[in-house]
Simulated scan of single mutants.
Amino acid sequence: MALRATVYKAELHVADNDRGYYGSHSVTVARHPSETDERLMVRLLAYALYADADERLAFTRGLSETDEPDLWRQDLTGAVELWIETGLPDERRLLKASGRAEQVVVFAYGRNAELWWKGVQNKVSRARNLKVFLLPAEQTQALAQLAQRNMTLNMNVQDGTVWVSGDAGEASVEVIARED
């Protein structure tokens, strides 16, 4: 029998001082059986950093679908405006995404994130619509400790750092932009 996804419900209260965006979002996220709490929480972090009032940013089937990112924003015609990946995707996936979407964003995390970036940096340099952010491993691991099946998270963003607090505690994550 195949394992099923676990459903997580989150109430996100976002105060993004860097973008001047303030809003609340109720989201439901399916956690794939092979997915960690860390990856789930990084997806929620990415959502908070790109959420806006139009509510078109959506979680996709992610790990279950190879032709979809973790999150995306589509326009009313179905064209992809924003493609968000979490983890350490290979350069072919990023180049393909940059051809399909107006903007591609990667939130790389884990012990090998910096090494991954050094390995793909030159290969993806022609993708002018790509933004890469590195998240420190110890900070995303602390973020993972906040994961609960039903959670309310307050996410305050200022100067590239996200402070997250919830019933299970608090964590801060520095979002470090990488350039070509």
Rank of each mutant, 00 (worst) to 15 (best):
E35N: 03
T36H: 02
L40Y: 04
L40H: 04
L45V: 05
A46W: 00
Y47R: 01
Y47Q: 03
Y50T: 14
A51H: 01
D52V: 07
A53K: 12
R56V: 08
L57T: 02
L57G: 00
F59N: 04
R61K: 14
R61W: 12
G62Q: 08
L63P: 05
S64R: 13
T66G: 15
D67R: 11
D67H: 12
D67P: 05
D70R: 07
R73L: 12
Q74Y: 11
L76I: 10
L76R: 12
V80K: 10
E81R: 13
L82V: 08
I84P: 00
I84R: 00
E85N: 06
T86P: 02
T86S: 06
P89R: 00
D90N: 11
R93F: 07
K96V: 11
A97S: 08
S98P: 02
S98D: 06
S98F: 06
G99P: 10
E102N: 15
V104T: 06
V106F: 01
F107Q: 01
A108H: 01
A108G: 06
A108T: 07
R111C: 13
R111Y: 14
N112K: 13
N112S: 14
A113Y: 01
L115I: 15
L115E: 15
W116C: 00
W116D: 00
W116A: 01
K118M: 10
Q121Y: 08
N122K: 15
V124I: 08
S125F: 09
R126C: 11
R126F: 13
A127N: 06
R128G: 13
N129F: 02
L130E: 02
L130G: 01
K131Y: 12
V132A: 06
L134M: 07
L134S: 04
L135I: 07
P136Q: 00
A137K: 10
T140L: 05
A142Q: 11
L143F: 05
A144H: 03
A144F: 05
Q145D: 14
A147F: 07
A147C: 10
M151F: 07
L153T: 07
L153A: 07
N154H: 15
M155G: 06
N156V: 14
D159Y: 12
D159V: 10
D159H: 12
G160R: 03
